[in-house]
């Protein structure tokens, strides 16, 4: 039983990181209706900046720099590229971001070269004992940070002008624009916040128990896609719940792989997608997503 408990705790803490990434997907989708394939490379960029600057600057300033650079990169993608094709359809927008992703990943892979960079995070490889199961300290911090981020985002949405503008733009862009909300500015800020969240997730993803910053880290962002879909595409609580579910499902299927061999090897790769398909079969708009209403 302690194994199950440990796996679930591990899963929840991993899920917290997925939640951060999924929140970014939701943010960008709500504001600009884009499926952002470049999210992973923004995440990698953030981690990379921290990796190359933490020796000179120290961890915390490097972290700040990484977050700022990732946020700026996301804003630049939106302003320079996506803004020009706002009216294009979903497939076109997604493929545009894919082109950007190819460019960024190629350059970052080349720069990373043969070395594994590390973030130099102060939590190192320490672990925390929670009721007899040990959890990496970095993951505990990730869970706390996610909780704080969700709280802050919620407050921003409820109580600030930016939040109201954001919600109005997501609900009905045309009307919002007529009310004097600058859609482009809202969109750029959403991309920026998503980029910053990706950078934070990137730091945790490249901390212990992962070895460091490698080009494949960007791919992990894709693992958050089932979390995003599961929660419903436009729901912040959905992204968090989806992230946690996918985290737990992943660690459980990895941990109990030995007992589930009849389902095939390396089960943890598919279970998130299987769960996602099941949920979509029952609830086509995900757990918390807005139901699509057909308008005539």
């Amino acid at each position: 039983m302690s194994n199950l408990f440990g796996l679930v705790l591990n899963g929840l803490s991993l899920g917290a990181i997925y939640a951060l990434i999924a929140l970014g997907f939701v943010m960008i989708f709500k504001a600009t209706h884009v499926l952002n394939f470049a999210h992973g490379s923004v995440l990698l960029l953030g981690a990379y900046v921290v990796g190359v600057t933490n020796d000179a600057l120290g961890f915390w300033p490097a972290l700040l720099l990484g977050i700022v650079v990732a946020a700026l990169a996301a804003v630049v993608i939106d302003v320079v590229i996506m803004r020009r094709v706002r009216a294009a359809d979903l497939g076109t927008l997604a493929i545009l971001t894919l082109g950007v992703d190819v460019l960024m990943v190629t350059e970052l892979t080349r720069r990373l070269g043969t070395a594994t960079l590390t973030t130099g995070a102060p939590w190192g490889t320490s672990t925390v004992d929670v009721l007899g199961s040990s959890i990496p300290l970095s993951r505990v911090i990730a869970a706390l940070v996610t909780a704080v981020v969700v709280g802050v985002l919620w407050a921003l949405f409820q109580f600030t002008n930016w939040g109201i503008a954001m919600r109005a733009a997501a609900a009905d862009g045309g009307t919002a624009e007529l009310m004097g909300i600058r859609l482009n500015r809202v969109a750029a800020s959403a991309w920026g916040v998503a980029g910053a969240l990706a950078a934070v997730a990137g730091i945790f993803l490249t901390s212990f128990p992962s070895p460091g910053i490698s080009p494949t880290v960007g791919l992990v962002a894709l693992a958050a896609i089932p979390a995003w879909v599961l929660g419903g595409f436009d729901s912040f609580p959905g992204a968090v719940v989806g992230g946690l579910i996918i985290g737990v499902v992943t660690t459980l299927s990895a941990g109990y792989q030995g007992d589930l061999t009849f389902l095939g090897r390396d089960l943890a790769q598919v279970t998130p997608y299987a769960v996602m398909l099941l949920v979509l079969l029952i609830r086509p708009s995900g757990l918390f997503g807005t139901k699509e209403v057909a308008r005539v």
Partner: peptide, 30 residues
Amino acid sequence: SDTDLSAQVNAMANDGVKAIIVAAASPQTA
């Protein structure tokens, strides 16, 4: 692409392994 192997290592610890063979790449080893 798996670089976080905490679930697998925890499971191995539960099974009481006395040694680990790694037929993978360096991120997994770390």
